[in-house]
Design a binder for these strands. Structure first.
Lengths: 205, 205
DNA sequence: CGGATATTTCTGTATAGACAGAAATTAGTT
DNA sequence: AACTAATTTCTGTCTATACAGAAATATCCG
């Protein structure tokens, strides 16, 4: 069975019941299935595919661990699809395998702490987006430095980009090491952070 | 002419000259074309399509503004493709139209300040990723609150997610208002920020 | 070591998106 | 207003990805 592709922009305040019934039958909660459907669709904007996002949503809201069979059934997607999606989610460390006593089948549960989830996503993005970009830039800057007669502005711009990526890299590495609660505090403070720091003697622009 | 799809993972330290010649002919710089090619490919990981990323790279390294025709020619892509890609880049505010005296054609130049670029990207991502997610969650939480007999844990998890997104939203809004130079300073300080703040009387976890 | 059940990998198909080229539209000049 | 040049929109094609279903493999038990 193939699900209907539906973008978030299209969904109004009124949920599209026809699309929802399939999941509803199993979950017995409209709110839950709505969340899963919307979240799965949000995955599109996030660059994550729908099945992966739906499974993460399902497990995030699930009180007890689920096995692959249950997931496939509840979401109405193919067992193989579930298998691959679970693998990806494990790769992002957003879910983990949990053994259920007296049951041969593998069960999965999601990380439910939202700060933890954010950290894992940030970590994954850094690895997939920043790290490769840094490698690419390093190559290019090297080539640019070696190239005789290259307009110095071009080299400068590449170096600017490289320095920026370096800063972001070390920053995110350090931030990922900061305990959740402190990070939470930092976020809650928002721009107050800047004011406090400018009072401690650092000079501004 | 259709370009060869090539993933970043495949590119080793040795640039693939065969793919590069087309751009080389026009740009007359190996380093520049390498940057454009790699950057365009990086776009894939970033969720941006190759043409868009290549054009941004080309303009980022370009000393003077270029018109659509020149871009199409230099990158070897169709004029229509350039038109659409430029529109998207303007939407992200990563490039701007600049009038060139005595030339009817529209010219474009890129934002070259890397912090400015980062800000625009962050802004765009917030609009495309966080804002819609917040709307979706708000709907779901509302539905969950209204639903009689819903497991309270499910409601709690949705609310956790909602609160988290709210925090990230106000945080990023505030941070985007911080002047570039101060942001730069903040980043450079990295986790030292946390240490300083914990000394100012805020309690930790 | 079979037999059963769970899981992964393989293969084919459908869909969404990227992109070229053509057609249509818009704007600018005399 | 008519001609010209620039730009956008439209249409068809191709490619990458998502996904189902089948086949193959692995795991556990007697």
């Amino acid at each position: 069975m193939r699900q209907v592709m539906m973008s978030v922009d299209m969904v109004s305040v009124i949920p599209d019941i026809s699309v929802m019934t399939e999941i509803d039958k199993k979950l017995e909660s409209a709110a839950k299935s709505q969340f899963i459907l919307y979240w799965g669709d949000m995955g599109g904007q996030w660059g994550v595919n729908r099945s992966v996002a739906q499974i993460q949503a399902l497990l995030f809201l699930s009180v007890s661990p689920l096995n692959a069979e249950q997931i496939a059934e509840e979401l109405g997607i193919a067992r193989s699809n579930v298998s691959n999606s679970l693998k990806e989610l494990v790769g992002w460390k957003l879910i983990r395998r949990v053994p259920v006593p007296g049951d041969r089948r593998e069960h999965f549960e999601a990380v439910t702490d939202v700060w933890e989830i954010a950290t894992r996503v940030a970590q994954g993005r850094k690895e997939r987006e920043i790290d490769p970009a840094m490698r690419v830039i390093a190559d290019c800057v090297e080539a640019a430095e070696a190239e005789a007669g290259l307009n110095p502005v071009v080299l400068q711009r590449m170096q600017d980009m490289q320095e920026f990526l370096n800063t972001v890299d070390t920053w995110s590495t350090q931030m990922l090491a900061v305990p959740k609660a402190k990070l939470n505090m930092l976020m809650k403070m928002g721009s107050k952070v800047v004011s406090i720091l400018t009072l401690t003697g650092k000079k501004s622009e």
